[in-house]
Design a binder for these strands. Structure first.
Length: 567
RNA sequence: CGGGGCGUAGCGCAGUCUGGUAGCGCGGUAGCUUUGGGAGCUAUAGGUCGGGGGUUCAAAUCCCUCCGCCCCGACCA
């Protein structure tokens, strides 16, 4: 019997100062978590109960998909990370420590190296493949900026899985199995997710999908097509072809114009009394030590991931002022592609065929107008370099893309053989020939998923838990605990519910009814069963659905069955 | 790391500009009343005013410095 009076459920009437988004506020107010420091949280009994339910769903679906649960250490010797070169890549996100022998260890931010090392030692034959290993474990990342409670924490619980296959086709099958398992997991958690094409980032690999929970508080931008299933993370999203940008002055010769004080796109556009879209934004980047002139429409933002990819660069950064002046021969703010030689240029596709545009003259306080790409910049290299945005055409069907924000709760990657080659995860085929295993990796942010559920399912009164992961499914609220018959009836019903396999919390506190009702709404358990003197006098108890707010009376005998049907 | 904000009782805040007995609401404890949507009255406990240094007869308040937290940005699996 779980009695509130014996629990630790410290609810708060007011929202703590340092919580900004609804899910974070509610987790604190409903007594699920407490903060220890930035990005560090204690799970209180109720929060832990919900977390365990998410974990159980994840475990069941991973097992069902044939993955094998293991548990790897959170502490790793530095050398393992150096073997793949990722010590450098992830240097800044890893917590580093020394043991008493001054050996260097890191707290694991992820486990590709560790699991691949295991497979390298234990698997040697095609007969042992495919295999998929997973764990549910605490990860550590020295986040630049922890945020929003569990949404981005320094320490968080992740389910990570790693598949190993004989070849790429087989790996696709493993990938699909995980993809399908993820769909079921999030469905069972009561989450509506949007699956988007994603960038593989520091993970490497060929393709990946992210499972996003649409929410204004989400940290990731994404676009989805109104007319077809296309959806992608903004980091990756492409756009369909737009008509060439043609403005007034298209037929006229280029002309250099004095533009005193107009330096930014907005200032220049204002000077010419036109829109930023007419500007050819010219940025100087340095890619692997080589300066590059990057051109884009003035109202678009450069997507550095796309740019890096298009250039085939490994390092990319905006040039500093000195480099810009050296390349353009002018102060910052007046760069342009016209009559500039000796520097590599790349332009966004949307500038192809543009006419009547305005750009910098590579002279202080001067710009050039009537630029016609085909005539004035005939030898440009084009690539997709800018972020897609709301209203752009869909790259698949030409429909309209809508921009949204989302919380990334799951991510699946096809990794290829990057890790298996470097760490020697090789197997022998039936002809005795050695091959690296083809890998995939699959993550679910378990703690983040829990918070995402609340972000997606709450109202002005509190949390609205999906039944599957609610800390308890039913709250038996005894209105006047001092009234003997009420208490007896409450305990009896709670016992009956529990024998029916339903999790029950009994609010037996000696508090005013209104106070307890408010707390019940805040906690948001799916069903509230109120036992009070008045209704007992009529021989009934009250059953209320948290989500719909509908309530109805039930006699003792039918209460359990009625509740069971609501869950 | 850049920009902004904050740090005063468990929580939410006032007081800081203009130095002079540390406050309010909620919460806690005890009692009485109340009891179907965050009750009322009374009493009571609870503070290194984030830390350190300085100025001053006197510092929550002014100065220096450090720390922590939140937001925006950059960055990130």
């Amino acid at each position: 019997m779980n009695r509130w009076s014996k629990q630790l459920i410290p609810t708060l009437k007011e929202s703590p100062q340092d919580a900004e988004i609804p899910s974070h506020q509610l987790m604190l107010r409903a007594g699920l978590i407490r903060k220890l420091g930035g990005g560090l949280y204690t799970f209180l009994p109720l929060g832990l109960k919900a977390l365990r339910k998410v974990e159980r769903i994840v475990r069941e679906e991973m097992d069902r998909a044939g993955a094998l649960e293991i548990l790897m250490p959170a502490l790793h010797p530095r050398e393992v990370w150096e073997r793949t070169g990722r010590y450098e890549v992830l240097r800044d996100v890893m917590f580093k420590i020394q043991d008493r022998q001054d050996r260097e260890l890191v707290l694991g931010p992820t486990h590709e190296e560790i699991v691949t090392d295991l497979v390298a030692r234990e698997i040697s034959s095609y007969k042992q493949l495919p295999r998929n290993f997973y764990q549910i474990q605490t990860k550590f990342r020295d986040e630049i900026r922890p945020r929003f409670g569990l949404m981005r924490a320094k320490e968080f619980i992740m389910k990570d899985a790693y598949s190993f296959d004989v070849d790429s086709d087989a790996a696709d099958v493993s990938y699909k199995a995980m993809y399908d398992a993820y769909v079921r997991i999030f469905e069972r958690c009561g989450l509506r997710t949007k699956i988007v094409e994603a960038d593989t980032g520091a993970m490497g690999g060929s393709s990946s999908h992210e499972f996003m929970v649409l929410a204004d508080a989400g940290e990731d931008g994404l676009v989805e097509c109104e007319d077809c299933p296309y959806a992608a993370n903004l980091e990756r999203a492409e756009t369909g072809k737009l008509p060439p940008l043609v403005f007034d002055g298209a037929e006229e010769e280029v002309e250099t114009v004095d533009t005193p004080g107009a330096r930014t796109i907005a200032e220049v556009a204002e000077f010419f009394a036109t829109s930023p879209a007419r500007m050819i934004k010219t940025l100087v980047y340095v890619a692997d030590d080589e300066p590059i002139l990057v051109l884009a429409p003035g109202d678009r933002d450069i997507n550095e991931i796309k740019l890096t990819r298009a250039l085939g660069a490994s390092e990319l950064a905006l040039a500093d002022d000195a480099v810009i002046e050296q390349v353009t021969g002018a102060p910052v703010g007046f760069a342009g592609p016209i009559e500039l030689s000796g520097v590599r240029m790349i332009a966004d596709e949307k500038l192809r065929g543009c006419q009547g545009c305005i750009t910098g003259a590579n002279q202080a306080d001067r710009h050039i107008k009537n630029v016609n790409q085909a005539r004035d910049l005939p030898n440009l290299t084009f690539a997709d370099l800018v972020f897609a945005r709301d209203g752009d055409p869909c790259p698949r069907c030409g429909g309209t893309l809508r921009q949204k924000r989302g919380i990334e709760v799951g991510h699946v990657f096809k990794l290829g053989t990057k890790y298996s080659e470097k760490l020697g995860a090789l197997y022998l085929d039936e002809h005795g020939k050695q091959h690296p295993a083809v890998m995939g990796c699959y993550g679910i942010g378990v703690t983040r998923t829990l918070q995402a559920v609340i972000e997606q399912s709450h109202d002005s009164d509190g949390i609205v838990w999906p039944s599957a992961i609610a800390p308890f499914q039913v709250e038996v609220l005894i209105i006047t605990p001092k009234h003997g018959p009420s208490m007896e009836m409450g305990l009896e019903l709670a016992a009956a519910l529990e024998s029916a396999g339903i999790d029950v919390l009994i609010d037996d506190r000696d508090e005013r009814p209104g106070f307890k009702f408010k707390d019940a709404d805040l906690l948001g358990l799916p069903v509230r069963l109120s036992v009070g003197e008045k209704s007992l006098a009529r021989g009934v108890v009250e059953i209320r659905n948290r989500r719909t707010g509908e309530s109805s009376d039930a006699v003792r005998e039918e209460a359990v069955e009625k509740i069971r049907q609501m869950l």
